[in-house]
């Protein structure tokens, strides 16, 4: 095993992992703030992928640029879902809220997936970017430009989210609500509005992730659940509610999968996430980057 091959695998793991991380950040944000576990997150990602696909097919818009359209579209969809669906469970006590949000979003996966199949058929779709075709080789490591651009877009999104949460008044309200919604409410924060916008923000993040997935993989109505699962494993790996830890944990999962493919072959790559998930629960339930058990 040459060091070059090892490095190539690690770099590829990083590329793959940036998608897992981005898919997980939105889920983690929504769970951390609303205590709503949205297992339809992967379905939102799938819808984002289709938005990219149709923009590319109908208008010829480069897929990387379509993230700028995808995010607002999914933001609006998120507003609608929170307003019409998840808003109903907001006031329940935490345990019931988590349980009901799981069930509602589980039903939602069925609705979105089958609606997508009826509207857009079960065919696998993919897009390609002409802006960043080709690739380069650095020190013997192949770096396809699409993957590199995907990684950069994911990083930019995370930095933007970080700035939003740390530097703005809205971000402060979100963090306060996540820590203690009752105290936040007493301090004059409109908790309901914060929930609404945070959920929509989570959906918009799923939309950007969907754009990246449609470029690097393919999109079909049934792909949602697999991405939900990746995101869930990453969220647990990071520690529930650790928003930026989720991105780092995504990179960890990507690299771990790549190593396992190298050792065990591609057929068993999906098992890695589950094994990591169980190991974390047994050894470090607060997650790799979480500070306290919730």
């Amino acid at each position: 095993m040459s060091p070059q091959l090892v490095a190539q695998n690690l770099v590829f793991g990083l590329f793959v992992g940036s998608n897992y991380g981005l898919a997980a950040v939105g889920l983690s944000l929504v769970f951390g703030v609303l205590r709503v576990l949205n297992v339809a997150h992967g379905e939102l990602l799938m819808v984002g992928g289709y938005v990219t696909f149709w923009l590319f097919t109908l208008t010829g818009l480069d897929p990387f640029l379509s993230a700028l359209v995808c995010a607002p579209v999914l933001f609006v969809l998120g507003l609608a879902l929170n307003y019409g669906l998840f808003g109903f469970v907001e006031r329940l006590d935490e345990e019931t809220k988590i349980k009901n949000s799981l069930l509602i979003s589980f039903g939602l996966t069925l609705v979105i997936q089958n609606a997508a199949q009826a509207l857009w058929s079960a065919d696998e779709r993919s897009v390609s970017s002409s802006l960043v075709a080709g690739g380069t080789v650095v020190m013997g490591i192949a770096l396809p430009y699409t993957r590199l651009a995907g990684l950069i877009l994911a990083l930019l999104t995370i930095v933007a989210l970080h700035q939003l949460l740390q530097r703005t008044y809205f971000g402060k309200a979100v963090r306060a609500t996540a820590e203690d919604w009752e105290a936040a409410s007493v301090a004059g924060i409109d908790v309901q509005r914060t929930y609404l916008i945070t959920f929509a923000l989570g959906a918009a993040l799923a939309g950007v992730a969907g754009t990246l997935v449609s470029i690097q993989y393919s999109i079909a109505p049934a792909v949602g659940i697999a991405w939900t699962l990746k995101a869930l494993v990453v969220v647990v790996l990071a520690g529930l509610g650790s928003i930026f830890g989720a991105f780092a944990a995504g990179l960890v999962l990507g690299i771990a999968e790549q190593i396992s493919v190298f050792i065990l072959g591609a057929a068993y790559r999906e098992v890695v996430g589950l094994v990591l998930f169980l190991l974390v629960l047994v050894l470090r339930p607060q997650g790799l980057f979480g500070s306290r058990a919730r």
Binding site: V39, L102, L229, L232, V236, A267, E270, L281, V282
Partner: peptide, 28 residues
């Protein structure tokens, strides 16, 4: 492992085992 902790872990674990077994069966 999931029942030792409360909350969402059991739901995630079961969703995970279902999906992982499906994909692995399809692959292998």
């Amino acid at each position: 492992p999931t029942f030792r902790l409360r909350g969402v872990y059991f739901a995630i674990g079961t969703l995970g085992v279902g999906e992982v077994l499906r994909l692995t069966t399809a692959n292998a």
